[in-house]
Amino acid sequence: MATVLRPLLRGRTYTRLLHLWVPALPFSVWIFIHPPTPWMPALVLVPLGLIPAVRTGEGIQARLMLMPGEAEPGISEEPSATWRDRLRTALWLAVRVALSGVTTVVTVWLPLLAYSLGELAAGGSPGGVPVLEDARPHWAYALLVPVPLVVLYAVVVGLGALVTAVARRLLGPSPAERLAALEARTEQLLERTRIARELHDSIGHALTVAVVQAGAARTAGDPAFTERALDAIEETGRAALEDLERVLGVLREPRRPVSSRPTLGDADRLLESARASGATVDAEVTGPLETVPGPVSREGYRILQEALTNALRHAGGVPVRVRVRVADGTLLLDVRNPLPEEVPGPGRGSGLRGIRERAALLGGRAHTGPDGGDWRVRVDLPVD
């Protein structure tokens, strides 16, 4: 019983009823203006449905009144872009008006029938209901009073579910809109993945430098070295905070363009940070870095950052050889460092996976793993 009566406690039952009542208003007004032609407003349904903006208005009404609170109601709020959408909107208006007429009749006559049955049970007259014109007062009519009300309840709930199903069918997104929504969703997921990689690379690098510097300063016991270590931690932390603020700004304002992301032109900052952490960095940069496209240069910076971070985290203050070369339409990033005592597997860690993902997205190749006694990260990215 509780399940059957649950729709009475749901707000959408009453918003759907209101949605069904609304189209009856112009017909009711027209009856007072010209009673002999109550059907006249129906003539404008097809021309009205062919107006592109009408689909937007109907979609907003359906979403708010038929499916309130649903995250993905499956209703389009875009104007009609094709003739198929226009015809679907016109058909929707016709169906909505027809269901509105049924709802109006039911919600008027069934309560009146219940009232007339109550009048007969109390010894009064039937009150103008045609089916009860010849009925005589009798107390037994009281047993029939709930019947019209139960039927009213079932019809209202059923018509609400029916108009909602029709709305999903006729006002739902077209194939082109579904494709656009899928593309937007894909872009959103890719952006979230990119932001996760950005945070991992930037914050992970800063924390690694801070940990290595703090440990080296404690071991060295040299005030001058400690001063340099604190300077390196401060500089790296400040850069990480700038990256964090930029990423959080993108999350707060999704439509704001991404700007000020570091490129390979800022690689000196990474190399100096690694040197300040105690590593001996032998860097060689050849070729015109300024000709590398922005996306490739930005991703190349992150790949180099992750490679240096791995070297500091797993090998400590060891010699690191960095080669950055632009030649023959390819950007080469090659980072080597001596293998530590415990060699990590070539596929372990989200950082290495991120390097391979970045390379694959740009149409390049990445190799990460042991190579001749060294740990090597080699990435080839096309720049054409």
Rank of each mutant, 00 (worst) to 15 (best):
T3C: 08
V4T: 09
R6F: 08
R6P: 02
G11E: 13
R16D: 01
L17I: 05
L18W: 13
L20E: 11
W21T: 11
W21E: 15
P36V: 04
M40D: 02
L50W: 07
T56I: 01
E58S: 14
G59H: 03
Q61C: 11
Q61K: 04
R63G: 09
L64I: 06
G69L: 03
E78K: 11
A94Y: 06
T104H: 12
V105S: 14
A122W: 13
A122I: 05
V129M: 14
V129W: 06
P130G: 08
A135W: 10
P146Y: 07
P148M: 02
V151P: 01
L152K: 14
V157C: 11
G158P: 10
G160C: 07
V163G: 03
P175N: 08
L182M: 08
E187K: 08
E198K: 02
D201K: 02
S202M: 15
H205G: 09
H205E: 00
L207S: 09
T219F: 00
F225Q: 15
A229R: 05
L230P: 03
E242Q: 14
E253V: 08
R256C: 04
S260A: 12
G265V: 07
D268P: 12
L270C: 12
L271P: 04
V281W: 05
E290H: 12
V292D: 03
P295C: 02
E299K: 02
Y301R: 10
R302I: 02
L304F: 05
P319E: 11
V320H: 02
V320Y: 05
R323F: 04
V324L: 15
L331H: 06
R336I: 08
L339E: 13
E342G: 04
S350Y: 00
G354R: 01
R356F: 01
A359W: 06
G364H: 07
R365C: 03
T368Q: 00
V379H: 06
L381V: 15
